[in-house]
Design a protein around this nucleic acid. Structure first.
Lengths: 157, 157
DNA sequence: AGCAAGTCGAGACCGAGTCTCATTTGCAGG
DNA sequence: CCTGCAAATGAGACTCGGTCTCGACTTGCT
């Protein structure tokens, strides 16, 4: 599974800018190329560093100004794992509602989606008089199955 | 529904301190009285303010030093709603598995519990080879119903 | 009472993120 | 191509929650 249709994402974002009468500057181009040139999650600071490799003139302020545009466009997802920085996911358009299970023992993170879960959340929310805008489920767990199956290689015993 | 058995919580925390060979100081007493003297969620800064009403000598540093002890003891729950500050829940011992809906517009927080949700999480997790240790679901929403019902008083239009 | 270790408050400090402002740049319209 | 101007930019000051340091003060044990 190589990088999906990143060109489409880039173009969608350019269209989004145009729609809002915002300009396509060289710095924004560098940032967008960077964001959709990876599948990895990243922090604002990482994005700054990477974007500067493409265009040294990109400043911290511009990165922080562009990030909200990216999330507003729906192409990038902002996530908060309780650390003191935020994490961004450039694959959001392809997996708009995914959740995370984190193994407390080995720090492995597995993503999953569930229509049942989404439906249940919507149902509960509307009962309480809310309309869902976004959701974030984090499950801390231990991956005992994995250990049984073959984690002997990376742990002692 | 008046305040539940807060005295028990206070005593549990004192016992927790003793167990760890930590001292019971007047400042810690003021903080603990404050924390278990309310049912409300609070921020560190709010706790500082409230605790100072009981004992003016309580400092910011002490509040921030005591909060981790409270969460470590399992009596208070630390939560992160994607704002730039953390929120603490002094009722955690009584409702260990509750979830939150946050209104992005008015910052209202509603708690709920759902056996269906818990079951679904367990089911999904075990399918993926994990066993749940803890979970945190946050739904960001807008409370449109509330607005309809009577927010005319605090908004213009 | 006396002492050692734990704890304290004040304020320096940290780091992610925001804001200001003088300068530059994209992009019509000519 | 040129010109005008609003939008966008970079540098760095700033904000703000939270942490750390350090000398002074308490607690709890003897």
């Amino acid at each position: 599974m190589p990088t999906p249709d990143r060109t489409a994402a880039k173009e969608k974002f350019m269209a989004f800018l145009e729609e809002k009468n915002l300009r396509i500057t060289s710095q924004r181009r560098a940032i967008v190329e960077t964001v959709f040139g990876t599948d990895q999650h990243f922090t604002a600071e990482q994005l700054l560093e990477w974007a500067r490799e493409r265009d040294a003139s990109v400043s911290r302020a511009t990165v922080y100004r562009t990030l909200p545009l990216l999330t507003e466009s729906g192409l990038v997802h902002e996530m908060d794992f309780g650390k003191d920085y935020k994490i961004y996911d450039p694959n959001y358009a392809d997996h708009p509602n995914h959740n995370h299970i984190i193994c407390d023992d080995c720090d492995k993170i597995v993503e999953f989606e569930s229509d049942k879960l989404d439906a249940l959340e919507t149902e509960i929310s509307s009962k309480l008089g809310f309309s869902v805008k976004s959701q974030q489920l984090r499950i801390n767990a231990s991956c005992e199955e994995m250990k049984k199956l073959g984690a002997c290689k990376n742990k002692d015993h």
